[in-house]
Amino acid sequence: MSENTVIIENGLWKNNVALVQLLGLCPLLAVTNSAINGLGLGLATLATLVLSNTLVSLVRNLVRQEVRLPVFVLIIACIVTTIELVMQAWFYELYLVLGIFIPLIVTNCSIVGRAEAFASRNPVGPAALDGFMMGLGFLLVLLVLGSLREAIGAGTLFAQAELLFGPAAEGWKLTLFNDYGGFLIAVLPPGAFFGLALLIAGKNLIEERFAGTARALAAAPAH
């Protein structure tokens, strides 16, 4: 397996930020009450991770060991501030919905975690790929959890897509069930915990199945 495949596999599945490392849970649990909210925060986090991994990797040989963490934090804070300003300029409504969780990306442990564990020890190419894949893994979990909670809680999908994709997306809202009374608890905070727990359980179940198949294959007599 090439190095890049390992990075991709780690980011999306094996070492997934949300499902395995369990990092960044505060925004993950708080904003995933709809698919679009989850996607919005996921994109912002993805952009932050790619940029921070790239910049940290670039300066990794210039920074002394003793002061590396303050430097990383400064870099991440600059990026998050920029993203916040960009969102205020072009996605103002979504910025209002996500609120405090955009500036709080700076405290998302996965970002400084990747900077320290990967970007500060690897060249720019792999570091950027790692940031992208870790961010994508986080984004996918946010999107799935947001969709799940929105579908169960309100019976819709992609409501308010225009916040992210502009006026053209106003008709994107899917109504899954007609006359759905709503299951409010899925949209409220308890639903976030139930949903994430189910996703983690699902991932573990799939892995167990795979491990079982692999064991069975290994145990089968070779022909």
Binding site: G181, F183, L184, I185, A186, L188, P190
Partner: peptide, 10 residues
């Protein structure tokens, strides 16, 4: 408590 929070109208 689950139904109390989930179905306020009913």
């Amino acid at each position: 408590v689950v139904v109390l929070i989930a179905f306020p109208k009913e």
